[in-house]
Simulated assay, not measured.
Amino acid sequence: MPSNTLGAGPLSAAALPLALFFAVTVEMAPAGALAHIAAALHTDIGSAAAGSSIYALSTAFLALPLAGFAQRFDLRNATIIAGLSFTVLGLAAAAAPGLTGYLAFRALNGAAHAAFFPLVLALAAAAAPRNTAQAVARVLLGNGLALALGVPAAEALAALDWRLPLALASLGVAAAVSFAPHPVPQEGGITEKPAERSPAGIVWLAALFALALAGHFAYYTFLAAAVEAQGLPAALVLSLYGAAVIAATAFSGPIARQNRLGRAVAVIAIESLVLAAMATVPGPATTIIAAVTAGACFGFLPTLIQTEMLEQAPQHRALVSGAAVVAFNTGIAVGAVSGATVTGFSTNAPSLLGSALLVLSAVGLATARTFARKQIVPGTQDSDEAELGTASGQYAN
């Protein structure tokens, strides 16, 4: 029996990353086509932009309840159904003749995304029970590639017709998810997972994850403005940031096989230091170094934290993934709003605020790691050390 999706055929291994690539492209594509959408629907840009806001709110509010509901059913079937529903609603939004229909279908599409994203992560983990970290990293790579490649491609297609990229990416979700891998049954006689932690522990990790993301996005939301203040080309620096995100995500699987919380603290501390340096010693060099380092840290962190959450509650993967989705959306929103409150002081003030929020998250995660190590159940292995004790048998594949 194969131990992970790498041995399940190339289509099966690529299915979930591709599905997430297309789904995130659907989510973000309208941001680059607002003028085209507004003109086609005979409205203003602000009203057209409401489609993205409604989508994000729908995803954030419904991720947990829908994930909790979906985990009652067969994981692969639920993922496929959610993916097909996402496709239908994405096509409906693309075909909407007026603003009201467009906004309504974007809200419903966001709800489908709220169910789909957690299920994809949960299925990836279930299909690779001996290598959860690599499975999560592979799926999240689809997310990073969507932001770096899918969204720019969608913006180019939108110049022809704003409906075209939305429809094509929606169909891509259905095509990819149809090859979704099957969960791998647990083999008897091998203790591969740590003891289940309390729900409070998962909530605490999700909250700290959201806080770290808030720190990152307090900086990133206003990165272009800070770059331009240094006389640098924003497109170049943002491209360097995106390349760092993709590279780090691609290599985050092996990093997340052991000592995940400890390494997450290190990653957050490094980003905090470079953001503080950018804010206190502004200049082209520190701005570029901060952008590349922050991109790399952002590439590593989601794999580390989400893998840890999945390992701590292997029997509730969909619900845990839903909590991670809520944390992600909350972190983005809080970071953008908190960064906006300090932009009046200087263009580098959001970086300093982001550094402070990251420090708070690092302290909380260090505390959580210490607490988790004290909760080891006799006869089991700690989630930070389980892979060390079974590496030769579990990761040989």
Rank of each mutant, 00 (worst) to 15 (best):
P282C: 11
S392Q: 14
R197I: 15
P97K: 14
A114H: 07
S198L: 12
R263A: 06
A333I: 15
Y55H: 05
T347K: 04
P30T: 12
A277Y: 02
T100E: 05
A174T: 09
K193D: 07
T343S: 06
H113V: 08
G344H: 11
A210T: 04
M28S: 02
E187H: 09
T370Y: 15
T25F: 04
A229N: 11
A366K: 06
I270Q: 00
A153M: 15
S351L: 02
H316S: 04
N329W: 09
L232Q: 00
T132S: 02
M309T: 05
I255A: 10
E271H: 03
G32A: 13
D44E: 15
G90P: 02
A70K: 04
A256Y: 10
P199S: 12
G364N: 09
P314D: 05
T25S: 10
P314C: 11
G331W: 03
M28H: 03
P129L: 14
L66A: 04
L310G: 02
M309V: 07
N259P: 03
A324I: 05
H113F: 14
A318S: 11
V274P: 00
S178H: 08
E308M: 06
L236I: 13
P17Q: 14
L357W: 01
H36R: 14
A60I: 13
L240N: 00
A128L: 07
P152A: 13
P65Q: 11
S53N: 13
G393T: 14
L108V: 06
A250D: 04
R130V: 08
A243G: 04
L275K: 00
A210I: 15
A235H: 10
G142S: 06
V267T: 07
G188M: 14
Q394F: 15
A396W: 09
G51S: 14
A296C: 04
E187V: 14
A38H: 06
A114M: 10
A15H: 01
A154P: 06
L273P: 00
A277V: 15
L388A: 09
A96W: 08
H182F: 14
G283S: 04
R76S: 07
S392P: 00
A133Y: 04
S58F: 13
V377N: 00
S239N: 01
Q381M: 10
L141M: 08
R197S: 12
V173H: 03
A276T: 00
T341H: 08
A153N: 02
D44F: 12
S53C: 06
P350L: 06
T287L: 05
I80W: 04
D384H: 10
A266G: 00
Q71G: 02
P282E: 09
A78S: 14
S239I: 13
G299N: 04
L6E: 11
F179R: 05
G188A: 15
G389K: 11
A50T: 12
I305N: 01
L18A: 11
Y55C: 09
T370N: 15
V120P: 00
L145E: 03
T100W: 12
G322Y: 05
F105I: 13
A175Y: 07
V274F: 14
L360H: 03
V325L: 15
G379W: 09
G339S: 09
G262W: 10
L319M: 05
T380Y: 10
N77D: 03
G7S: 14
A104M: 09
M28P: 00
I45F: 06
G46R: 05
A225H: 05
Q134N: 08
G215L: 08
G150Y: 12
S338K: 02
F300Y: 13
E385C: 10
A31H: 05
T59W: 01
T5D: 05
A19W: 06
A8V: 06
